[in-house]
Amino acid sequence: MINRAEIDGKFIKNEAEFYKRLAEQIDFGVGYGYNLYAFRDRLECDLERPVEIVWKNHDISKILMGKDYEIIIKVMSDIQEDDKLFYPEGKRFVYLLE
């Protein structure tokens, strides 16, 4: 089973909304902190692979979120690259910007 979330940038105007929308679709577990550190920790260590996040209309969020958007993308990019070292293809974290 894949942990998958599809979020729409039309509805993600700030960092808090990003974490809230993801948690509605992916079970981050009890005590999830709805912040960058909790997101990174759960994504890196706790979620069973594969994990896929599809961010539709991400360009809208990019404009509205500014630096927070860039930080989230950096975290996801780093984890995606790290997963290439530890997991076979098809069993990794991937994110797609549409």
Results as ranks from 00 to 15, higher is better:
residue 1 M to A: 06
residue 1 M to P: 03
residue 2 I to H: 01
residue 3 N to I: 11
residue 5 A to K: 05
residue 5 A to D: 02
residue 11 F to E: 11
residue 13 K to I: 15
residue 14 N to A: 04
residue 17 E to D: 09
residue 17 E to G: 00
residue 18 F to Y: 07
residue 18 F to W: 03
residue 20 K to W: 01
residue 21 R to H: 01
residue 22 L to R: 00
residue 22 L to Q: 03
residue 22 L to H: 07
residue 24 E to N: 06
residue 24 E to G: 02
residue 27 D to A: 13
residue 30 V to E: 15
residue 31 G to Y: 00
residue 32 Y to N: 07
residue 32 Y to I: 05
residue 33 G to A: 03
residue 33 G to M: 07
residue 34 Y to F: 14
residue 34 Y to V: 03
residue 36 L to S: 09
residue 38 A to Y: 08
residue 38 A to G: 09
residue 39 F to N: 10
residue 40 R to V: 07
residue 41 D to P: 02
residue 42 R to P: 01
residue 43 L to Y: 00
residue 43 L to P: 00
residue 44 E to Y: 14
residue 44 E to T: 10
residue 44 E to I: 12
residue 47 L to W: 11
residue 51 V to K: 05
residue 54 V to P: 06
residue 55 W to Y: 11
residue 56 K to N: 15
residue 56 K to G: 10
residue 58 H to T: 10
residue 59 D to E: 15
residue 59 D to H: 13
residue 60 I to G: 04
residue 61 S to Y: 10
residue 61 S to K: 00
residue 63 I to L: 03
residue 66 G to N: 07
residue 66 G to D: 12
residue 66 G to F: 11
residue 69 Y to Q: 03
residue 70 E to D: 15
residue 71 I to F: 09
residue 72 I to D: 11
residue 75 V to D: 01
residue 77 S to W: 00
residue 82 D to E: 08
residue 84 K to V: 00
residue 85 L to D: 04
residue 87 Y to S: 00
residue 88 P to N: 09
residue 88 P to G: 00
residue 89 E to T: 12
residue 89 E to N: 04
residue 91 K to I: 13
residue 92 R to I: 07
residue 92 R to P: 08
residue 93 F to G: 06
residue 93 F to R: 09
residue 93 F to K: 06
residue 93 F to N: 09
residue 94 V to G: 07
residue 94 V to T: 15
residue 97 L to Q: 08
residue 97 L to G: 10
